[in-house]
Nucleic acid binder design. Structure first.
Lengths: 266, 266
DNA sequence: TAAACTCGTTTGATATATGCAAATGTTTAT
DNA sequence: ATAAACATTTGCATATATCAAACGAGTTTA
């Protein structure tokens, strides 16, 4: 989305979709732009881009004020729809609120899409810090090996799904603690499977630790994770390695039950 | 967006954009669909729709599992970006949290786009009710005359902007209390301007009242509103007509100051 | 005050990407 | 084993996206 398309291996595609995607990507990157500014960044003439912008504006993808285009607020309403139709969100947001309240820290509900982690919901406990940072983090799907929730999911995928993800990419580092060696990561994931929870020891953000647990359903199609993150100073020793994991796994279990019962109803 | 384009008055447009918009609209409406299901709803052959779906999937707009397409979770991440780039959200979300906490009820931060109200942020106080209903409400931009925040904005727009909005549409009713008469609405808006706040007396949801206040900036370009909503039984008499309006206006004022200072910084 | 420049918008002509119909795979049902 | 339903591919005709160039509006410069 917005400029991240894979190469088209010979199969026919609609070129206009790619052009639209490219234009939206440019506007997202510039945050706002005039026709000339946008056209400069795209391999199309000003006249053509003008026609695209007119149509995208008319269809509600863009707003325009004094010749300046931006992504429209309608993306927010569409996102609400997508979220509300995601059963994991519906089953989990109250439990994540409860987790944030019990721990006083940030709690997260995430899902996997295209080998990346998308945050469905985030709840801020009383003592939660780095609010703005977390807001920005949600703008970009994250690598699964960067944090506890991602590792919890990765560990519990079927082997072939995990292999496909691990083989498709290099393990980029985010901090000096990020696991970048595949063998080491696979060992860790083995432990995560055994324990039922994953830890993140300053692997994503220096000074921050986190605990995550997978959310499973029998048929395997729905999948996600919950996690709780806090400054390392407030998350150490027994609390980090036992008490909080218990609470996080309990939350995951509650969400699993919610998913189960919701499924039987509808 | 997704099937709400106005008619194209003679000017040239990119037809593919409309087709994409229509396809996404169908998938949004069906929530999920196979190629055949989607193609049935669109005036294109299966083969053509197939090419569109392939491209939209490749570009990250859709997910596909066992031949079933859905809107992708990436819409959520894009929405986060849009929201974080909206200065009103950045200036207002903490204040709206505070408003929800002080009143114990739902607090809302909204903006106007295309003559409709879009919710940028919503905060749930301790006693807030109808959570699921509010989630669903956020999926669709609302008419401005349906609630307190919308009326607060409408009342404080420049006259021509207000006229353009009022003249473009019928005043649809939502409950028996909704103001559907233009003259009556204009009178109400006059009062709203005088008071500095707007009331909603079961005009949007039966049994719910709300109080809203406009968020202004000198140059007039940024515009929005805050509101607080609660069951009528908890929002009556002096509390409805004076105490809560004071608090809501205070919140709006704080957000205005945040906007001002943020603007001077960057 | 005119000329030069910038930016958005329109338009005719053209190449090509799109869309159809029909054929080909692939899976599911009988 | 056969039929049916569905997804996918492909050749061909044509609608349409694109370019270049012209036009118009607004701003700056001399």
């Amino acid at each position: 989305m917005f400029g991240t398309a894979k190469e088209t291996n010979g199969r026919r595609e609609i070129k206009s979709v790619h052009k639209i995607d490219e234009i939206l990507a440019v506007i997202k990157r510039l945050n706002e732009g005039t026709l000339t500014e946008i056209a400069e960044e795209v391999d199309l003439t000003k006249g053509t881009v003008h026609t695209y912008l007119r149509t995208l504006h008319n269809c509600g993808y863009l707003t325009e004020e004094d010749g300046v285009y931006r992504l429209s607020l309608q993306f927010i309403t569409v996102a609400e729809h997508v979220r509300n139709e995601t059963s994991l969100y519906m089953a989990g947001h109250d439990e994540v609120d409860a987790l944030a309240e019990r721990t006083g820290e940030y709690a997260h509900l995430v899902a996997e899409e295209r080998a990346r982690e998308v945050t469905l919901y985030e709840s801020r406990g009383e003592y939660a810090i780095a609010t703005d940072y977390h807001l920005r983090l949600r703008e970009t799907p994250q690598y699964l090996h960067h944090n506890a929730a991602g590792k919890a999911m990765l560990a519990n995928f079927a082997a072939d799904r995990r292999d496909r993800i691990l083989e498709a990419q290099e393990l980029e580092a985010q901090t000096e603690n990020t696991i970048t060696d595949e063998a080491e990561l696979r060992d860790t994931l083995e432990t995560v499977r055994e324990n039922g929870y994953a830890l993140n020891d300053e692997e994503e953000i220096r000074g921050m630790r986190a605990v995550g647990a997978p959310i499973r359903v029998p048929d395997g199609s729905i999948f996600g994770a919950v996690s709780m993150s806090a400054p390392a100073s407030r998350l150490q020793g027994e609390r980090f390695r036992s008490a909080v994991p218990e609470i996080v796994m309990e939350t995951a279990n509650l969400i699993e039950v919610n998913l189960e019962t919701a499924q039987r109803e509808g």
